[in-house]
């Protein structure tokens, strides 16, 4: 399965970025092979508004089936849901650890946003 993990750095040992919309990187990981690619999200970090929506569009375009992150707001949630992408919030530690947890079934998919949006 191809997933996106929000990351504070460009490799699997980087800490998970708890933010979704303004995460510094997305690591796109193939959970079967362990291969990954890096997607820089710097442009969105500084986005004026709608960072969650734009990040949702970005990961949808990356063709992932699931997103692993810390927090997800209502607009990002709606965007990911529209793209049929499952959302696993509450991840912490390194990206590698988060992927292992997901594979072990220790992360629960969210059925709603787990933080309030910044609204603007």
């Amino acid at each position: 399965m191809k997933i996106a993990v929000t990351s504070q750095g460009p490799d699997m040992n980087s800490p998970v970025d708890p933010r979704f919309g303004r995460a510094s990187h997305f690591l796109v990981v193939d959970t079967d092979t362990g291969e990954f690619s890096v997607h820089d999200n710097t442009q969105n970090v500084n986005a004026a508004q709608g960072a969650g929506i734009q990040a949702g569009r970005t990961v949808a375009d990356l063709g992932v089936e699931a997103v692993v992150t810390g927090h997800v707001g209502p607009k990002a949630f709606a965007t990911l849901q529209a793209a049929d992408i499952r959302i696993y919030p509450g991840a912490s530690g390194t990206v590698q650890e988060a992927v292992e947890k997901l594979k072990a079934g220790q992360l629960q998919p969210a059925d709603r946003a787990n933080v309030e949006g910044h609204w603007m």
Binding site: E116, G117, H118, W119, M120
Partner: peptide, 10 residues
């Protein structure tokens, strides 16, 4: 309005 909503959301 907008600044008030932004100050209370969440």
């Amino acid at each position: 309005g907008c600044p008030v909503i932004a100050s209370i959301a969440g």
